[in-house]
Amino acid sequence: MTQIHANCVALGPHAILLRGPSGSGKSNLALRLVRAGGRLVSDDRTDLVAHEGKLIASAPIQIARLCEVRGIGIVRGLAHQAAGDVRVLFDLVADPAGVERMPEPRSETFCGISIPSWKIWPFDMAAGAKIEVALALAIGEMQLET
Results as ranks from 00 to 15, higher is better:
residue 4 I to H: 11
residue 6 A to V: 05
residue 7 N to L: 08
residue 14 H to Y: 15
residue 18 L to M: 00
residue 19 R to A: 09
residue 22 S to V: 00
residue 24 S to H: 04
residue 25 G to S: 04
residue 25 G to Q: 01
residue 26 K to D: 00
residue 31 L to N: 09
residue 33 L to R: 01
residue 33 L to K: 02
residue 36 A to Y: 05
residue 36 A to R: 12
residue 37 G to I: 08
residue 37 G to Q: 12
residue 43 D to W: 02
residue 45 R to E: 13
residue 45 R to V: 09
residue 45 R to D: 07
residue 46 T to L: 12
residue 46 T to C: 13
residue 57 A to P: 10
residue 57 A to Q: 03
residue 58 S to V: 04
residue 59 A to G: 08
residue 67 C to F: 03
residue 67 C to H: 12
residue 68 E to Y: 03
residue 68 E to C: 02
residue 78 L to N: 04
residue 79 A to S: 14
residue 80 H to S: 14
residue 81 Q to H: 07
residue 83 A to G: 06
residue 84 G to Y: 02
residue 85 D to W: 09
residue 85 D to T: 07
residue 87 R to C: 12
residue 87 R to N: 04
residue 88 V to Q: 04
residue 90 F to L: 05
residue 91 D to R: 00
residue 94 A to V: 00
residue 96 P to R: 01
residue 97 A to K: 13
residue 97 A to P: 00
residue 98 G to D: 12
residue 99 V to C: 14
residue 100 E to Q: 14
residue 103 P to I: 01
residue 105 P to T: 02
residue 109 T to D: 05
residue 110 F to Y: 14
residue 111 C to F: 00
residue 113 I to D: 10
residue 114 S to R: 11
residue 114 S to W: 05
residue 115 I to R: 03
residue 115 I to G: 08
residue 116 P to F: 10
residue 117 S to T: 13
residue 121 W to K: 03
residue 124 D to R: 04
residue 129 A to D: 11
residue 130 K to I: 06
residue 133 V to A: 13
residue 136 A to S: 08
residue 136 A to Y: 01
residue 137 L to D: 11
residue 139 I to H: 09
residue 143 Q to A: 15
residue 146 T to N: 14
